[in-house]
């Protein structure tokens, strides 16, 4: 498979960048030349080789940098990882899901040996090796969710199912596009979705909730969400807004290609078997405009999507300030040719 983990940063000097293989691996979110809000849930089944969809838990060249950035964020703000006491069973379910997926799909990097409840986990890139008793918290150096998610890319929320609703009762959130675990912890599905404009009117969330409540073991689903971020910053949480909010004013026609990033979240949901909870994973990907325009279909489409984006959505996603500058820059890469349907490069 030949994953080479890069030494790079998501803060300070911002050395994050994508290799050509990582660009093609990026989950480009627009399947046509305009964007419309939709819940668009599809089965989370293994997809095309070399893309973010190849494996249920995606590990890529940014793995070590992501894990380092998470450790920095957690050291500055421990409340980014919280779990209510009744979520312990779900935490163990998550350990099982992540360890078995990672070891199965990336055997040269991770290995898991199970002998009943005696587990042996090896994470070669991070040089971690632990033997523990599954289900016994005292045998791990950290609580189970924190232990495994410090070793797995993406944010994770554990949703408890009660009273016909889902409750965000545990999570680790260090690379969120402008939302806060500390604010949402303990909230129900309807409460934490309240800020999305227009969605309530069309009853999208009632249907989505019903769908989620009925999720079955062994049938994970996924959807894509997107926004834009200035500078390759993973941590754009409300708590640190003073640090990154100002970035939005720094975009100029000269620096669009390097500063403006398309940020895509591949959100996946699994029913967890023993706890009956649901895990909601939010795996973020960043792509610089300069990297995006190496794929002709994506440059045409990105330009057209931004041009036709309804102002209220641009405002909600926080990109109004630099939308026009970015459109102007992208226009050089849009020759007006038609684009083929679907996400993937031609």
């Amino acid at each position: 498979m030949g994953l080479m983990f890069k030494d790079e940063t998501y803060r300070g000097d911002f050395t994050f960048a994508n290799s050509p293989a990582a660009i093609r691996h990026f989950p480009f979110p627009f399947h046509e030349d305009k964007y419309m809000y939709a819940v668009n849930i599809e089965p989370h089944v293994p997809g095309r080789k070399g893309t973010a969809y190849e494996f249920p838990i995606d590990i890529d060249e940014h793995y070590l940098a992501d894990m380092r950035d998470r450790a920095i964020t957690l050291a500055e703000d421990p409340l980014r990882c919280q779990s209510l006491p009744h979520m312990l069973a779900a935490e163990w379910d998550l350990v099982e899901l992540l360890m078995t997926s990672m070891a199965r799909d990336y055997p040269e990097h991770f290995s898991l040996t199970r002998d009943g409840d005696q587990w042996h986990w090896i994470n070669r890139p991070m040089k971690i090796e632990d033997k523990f008793t599954f289900g016994n918290v005292a045998t791990l150096p950290l609580r189970p969710m924190e232990y495994i998610t410090r070793q797995c890319q993406g944010d994770f929320c554990l949703l408890d199912q009660r009273d016909g609703d889902l409750w965000m009762d545990a999570g680790i959130v260090t690379s969120q596009a402008d939302w806060s675990l500390d604010f949402d912890i303990g909230m129900s599905f309807k409460e934490w979705h309240a800020p999305v404009p227009m969605a309530h009117e069309i009853g999208i969330f009632d249907r989505a909730l019903k769908f989620l409540l009925a999720m079955q073991i062994g049938h994970p689903v996924r959807r894509l969400n997107w926004t834009m971020t200035i500078n390759p910053r993973l941590d754009t949480a409300p708590e640190t807004y003073p640090k990154w909010g100002i970035d939005r004013t720094t975009v100029t026609p000269e620096n669009v290609g390097d500063k403006v990033h398309l940020r895509v979240e591949l959100q996946a949901l699994w029913r967890l078997p023993r706890s009956n909870a649901i895990v909601f994973s939010i795996r973020g990907y960043l792509l610089k405009m300069r990297e995006l325009v190496t794929i002709p279909k994506w440059s045409r489409r990105m330009h057209r999507v931004l041009k036709t984006l309804p102002p209220e959505i641009a405002a909600y996603k926080g990109l109004s300030r630099y939308q026009q500058t970015t459109i102007d820059w992208l226009s050089k890469y849009d020759d007006g040719q038609p684009t083929s349907l679907g996400f993937f490069p031609d």
């Binding site: 069973a89 408890d160 199912q161 009660r162 079955q216 073991i217 078997p273 706890s275 009956n276």
Partner: peptide, 9 residues
């Protein structure tokens, strides 16, 4: 299996 009668943890 589907659980419509889980305990409240």
């Amino acid at each position: 299996p589907v659980n419509l009668f889980p305990v409240d943890r």
